[in-house]
Design a protein around this nucleic acid. Sequence first.
DNA 1: TAGATTGTTAATCGATTAACAATC
DNA 2: TAGATTGTTAATCGATTAACAATC
Lengths: 209, 209
Amino acid sequence: MEEKTISQAVIGRLPRYYRYLGDLKDAGMERISSGELSELMSVTASQIRQDFNNFGGFGQQGYGYNVEYLYNEIGKILGLNEAHRLIIVGAGNLGRALTNYSNYENRGFIFEGIFDKDEDLIGKKVGDLKVLPMNELEDFIIGHNIDIVVIAIPKTGAVEVADRVVKCGIKAIWNFAHTDLNVPDDVVVENVHLSDSLMKLSYMLYRND
Amino acid sequence: MEEKTISQAVIGRLPRYYRYLGDLKDAGMERISSGELSELMSVTASQIRQDFNNFGGFGQQGYGYNVEYLYNEIGKILGLNEAHRLIIVGAGNLGRALTNYSNYENRGFIFEGIFDKDEDLIGKKVGDLKVLPMNELEDFIIGHNIDIVVIAIPKTGAVEVADRVVKCGIKAIWNFAHTDLNVPDDVVVENVHLSDSLMKLSYMLYRND
DNA sequence: TAGATTGTTAATCGATTAACAATC
DNA sequence: TAGATTGTTAATCGATTAACAATC
């Protein structure tokens, strides 16, 4: 099975396709052509066809794409058919927001635990979860078969937490801390740097006249 | 003053430069060469020099770059020398998290108000702010000279809110709703699609063997 | 001055778009 | 079959990297 590497540019577009196809599916649409999807999403039809063909042909000449089939296939590519077990480190506002947000928005992503170092928060409830102390981190990850760790603490501490979870075999980190993490090559990190994002907006607003 | 357009790729890297330079400045470092910065940030020295030269020369042959000067210049480019007044629409977990987060992390971004349609939340305190009802939105934006609106509500309603704020002259939206907004050309939108981000992580984890 | 390092041009690489033959 | 639209190759465009002359 030849596995050509897919560019980051393509991967970055997959969730958006998935979102639009989900909406179309829910609206009862059965088939769609790259041309129609192109207009809807404001990208070229050429790009859509190229993107999909990275993963083999999902369409049919003269017909287009079956919406539900394509939706499911992209879901599979994104790994959404497998359940993921997550924990959140940091029970501050952001950690709490993510717990609730993700419970209803993202099926397939199961939030198993939330941790904090603050004595006052430990034992408190966040949604269905009770905040756990940091010294239980390693045992919990191993015992509950966690595969994704969400880092939602300030940048001091983030690097250390990353090191700890990588040591117990974690291969995926969703990082909200305002810093880059330094992890081995076989660990993937998806950064959500909110202040970077806000600065970009500020730049665009400033240059917008 | 010729204003060549800067590519999105370059803009997207500016906040990261700003972050590293801020750390270097705080650590008391006075000068740095593109070669040293290159090693620190894991990008090529060539790219660093090209990026900076989009905005004119900040360095000096044989010397490199003055850290503090470069930091300040990039800050100016990002529009951080101007104060921005923001409001948040949505006083749920995410809205509350952003209020607190941004108050201490992002100087220059002033959170002036928070709105929600939920009767039970209206009047409640979020940090220093009292939650306001949605019917006061337009007057508040105009009266308080708001220039950025943060949308932190579910996708139902997000498009309508965007339309309303654009109508009172808002030119920048920081969108956390799980949908694309359709706004005029002169309005900039910075999307933070958290589930898209999580799906990307899922993909990378899945393909990682 | 000699050494270092930028600013900038040229070469390479990759991603996007266009075109069209294959085929449903 | 004829029309439509994909899959895929070729052309274009833009971004990254390499190279080096300018200069502090």
